Amino acid sequence: HHHHHGSGALAALHAEGPLAGLPVTRSDARVLIFNEWEERKKSDPWLRLDMSDKAIFRRYPHLR
């Protein structure tokens, strides 16, 4: 159930192989992290948004 927010940013994801479903670039990863943060913020208003490279690598090590 993907609803768009204002920016309408869509992340490019790997379609197949071992990385299927994972973001292709760091900016794609940022979109995913932001979208998930927006969702989680509803139940956790104090949740901090962390889109640093460090956060991205921790989450998606293949982007190193």
Rank of each mutant, 00 (worst) to 15 (best):
E36I: 04
P45Y: 06
K42Q: 11
A11D: 03
G8T: 11
H4M: 11
R58P: 02
I56K: 00
L32R: 02
H4R: 13
S52Y: 02
A12S: 14
R58I: 13
L47C: 10
R59K: 12
A12T: 11
H2L: 13
A11V: 11
P18D: 07
L47S: 10
G21K: 03
W37P: 00
A55V: 11
E38Q: 15
R64H: 07
H1W: 05
E39W: 06
F57Q: 07
H4E: 08
A9P: 10
L10M: 13
M51R: 03
N35C: 12
A55Q: 08
F57Y: 13
L63E: 00
S7P: 14
A29M: 00
G6R: 14
E16W: 08
V24R: 11
H62F: 02
A12G: 08
K42I: 09
E39P: 02
K41L: 08
R30P: 00
T25C: 08
L10H: 14
I56N: 03
E36L: 06
S7E: 12
G8M: 09
R30F: 05
S7Y: 12
G21I: 02
M51E: 03
D50A: 04
L49R: 02
D44R: 05
T25A: 08
L22Y: 06
H5I: 14
F34S: 04
E39A: 11
S7K: 14
L47M: 09
D28Y: 02
H2S: 10
P23W: 00
K54Y: 09
V31R: 12
Y60Q: 00
W46D: 14
P61G: 02
P23H: 00
H2T: 11
I56S: 00
F34N: 04
G17S: 03
H62R: 01
G17R: 01
R59G: 02
M51H: 03
V31Y: 08
A55E: 15
A9Q: 13
A15E: 14
R26F: 11
A55T: 08
F57D: 15
L10I: 14
H5D: 11
H14W: 12
R26Q: 07
G17D: 03
S7A: 12
L19F: 13
G8K: 10
M51P: 02
S43Y: 14
D50H: 04
R40I: 06
A29S: 01
F34E: 04
P18M: 06
F34L: 07
D28V: 04
P61F: 04
R64E: 11
H5K: 13
H14D: 02
L22R: 03
E16F: 11
A12Q: 14
W46N: 15
F34A: 05
L47P: 06
H5F: 12
A55P: 04
G6E: 14
S43P: 04
L49G: 14
L13T: 09
H62A: 15
S52C: 04
S52Q: 02
V31T: 10
L63S: 00
G17F: 03
R64S: 10
